[in-house]
Amino acid sequence: MPAFSAAVPAFFGALEKVRTVMASGLISSAPSRAGRGVATSIVASVLFAVIFLIAGLLPGWGAQEIFGWRVVLTLATLGAMMPFLPGARTELKSLARRVRRRPALLLPGVFAAGIVGVQLWLFMWAPLNNMALSVSFGYFLLPLTMVLAGRIFFADRLSRLRKFAVAAAAVGVAHEAFSAGGLAWPTLVVCLGYPIYFVLRRKFGFDNLPAFAAELLLLLPVGLFFILTGPHGVGSDAGTTGLFAAISIGVLGGVAMALYLLASKWLPLSLFGLLSYVEPVLLVGVSVYLGETLGWSSIFTYGPILLSLLFLAVDGRRRTPRLR
């Protein structure tokens, strides 16, 4: 698979970024909470873009099978990482105590697992089915819907620049919806599903890595089923390149979700949502690399959204404490 060789340097480059962030303060308490949140969010976005690229370079592998590998290996990666993450053991014990005392908490947990399962599958399915741009646009919409969710459910306050960022993004979204005659279903699944997921996690106190690992544990039987029944299951000749790609997706998925969920915990929901604009910019680049095209009118969609990124960058520079 010659095209996959282009993703190999990106894979190791992403791992080096993770190592640098970890060494510079993810585990250390020296950097400020906000500073760590910004850094981890950006690195997570880079890793998700690498996963998107690798998935798109795996013809012959179905989305279900890749999803299965991602669930299994992401769970294994988180299991290896959590003992070294600050507070993970305490959060795990606290989660187990709460569920033991209130078994009804399993219901929102199962619902959250279902939402994240659909999102993980869609992220694998889209680049293999020429829907990468639709999913990318969903991630462009996501910060806007996250800001609204933060405002409605948690009374997050918006600075003037953040209001400008939301307004600029809304212009781009309105143009896309008008020119395309509506929004594609993968776009809506992303931009509406994730806010429900994060609000649910915060409302029930599940906004930590052990809770996400528990969600993956619920998805594990489905993941194993897809692996065993897929064309590259047990006893088949998957090829070294294909297996390396599947393993890479799983491992990077674990690291990326760990960083992403840590950032969601460290940052206000509105700032976390706006900062998420970094990821869709990268995903659009991957989509174009994989062969999808953008028309000239896209400038009226992505231009205002990029302007909102500029507002966010200026606001973040003013409000994020300097790292010491």
Rank of each mutant, 00 (worst) to 15 (best):
F4P: 01
S5Q: 14
S5Y: 14
S5W: 14
A6N: 12
A6G: 13
A7H: 02
A7L: 08
A7G: 05
V8L: 15
P9G: 09
A10K: 08
A10N: 06
F11S: 03
F12D: 04
G13M: 08
A14G: 15
L15F: 12
K17G: 10
V18Y: 08
V18C: 13
R19D: 06
T20Y: 12
T20L: 15
T20G: 07
V21N: 05
M22V: 13
M22G: 11
A23W: 11
A23V: 09
S24D: 12
S24T: 14
G25H: 09
G25P: 05
L26D: 03
L26Y: 11
S28G: 15
S28M: 08
S29N: 12
S29M: 11
S29D: 13
S29K: 15
P31N: 10
S32D: 09
R33A: 14
A34H: 08
G35H: 06
R36F: 09
G37I: 07
G37V: 07
V38G: 01
A39M: 11
T40R: 02
S41A: 15
I42E: 04
V43G: 01
S45D: 00
V46R: 03
F48N: 00
F48L: 02
F48Q: 00
A49D: 00
A49Y: 00
I51V: 11
I51P: 00
I54Q: 02
I54Y: 02
I54W: 01
A55E: 02
A55W: 03
G56M: 06
G56P: 04
G56R: 03
L58G: 03
L58M: 15
P59F: 08
G60W: 14
G62A: 08
A63I: 07
E65Q: 14
E65N: 07
E65S: 07
E65W: 04
I66D: 00
I66F: 05
F67P: 01
F67R: 05
F67H: 07
F67G: 00
G68W: 02
G68D: 03
W69D: 00
W69T: 01
R70M: 07
R70C: 03
T74S: 14
T74D: 03
L75C: 06
L75S: 04
L75G: 01
T77G: 04
L78A: 05
L78E: 00
L78W: 04
G79V: 06
G79T: 10
A80Q: 10
A80D: 07
F84T: 08
F84M: 11
L85V: 11
P86W: 06
P86Q: 13
P86F: 05
G87R: 13
G87S: 10
G87K: 11
A88N: 06
A88Q: 09
T90V: 12
E91M: 10
L92G: 07
L92T: 09
L92W: 10
K93R: 15
K93N: 13
L95C: 06
L95W: 03
L95Q: 04
L95M: 12
A96H: 09
A96Y: 07
A96E: 12
A96M: 14
R97W: 14
R98P: 04
V99P: 02
V99C: 06
R100N: 12
R100T: 15
R100C: 11
P103D: 10
P103A: 11
A104E: 15
A104I: 13
L105S: 06
L106P: 04
L106T: 08
L106F: 13
L106N: 08
L107K: 07
P108C: 11
G109L: 14
G109E: 03
V110N: 08
A112I: 05
A113E: 01
A113M: 10
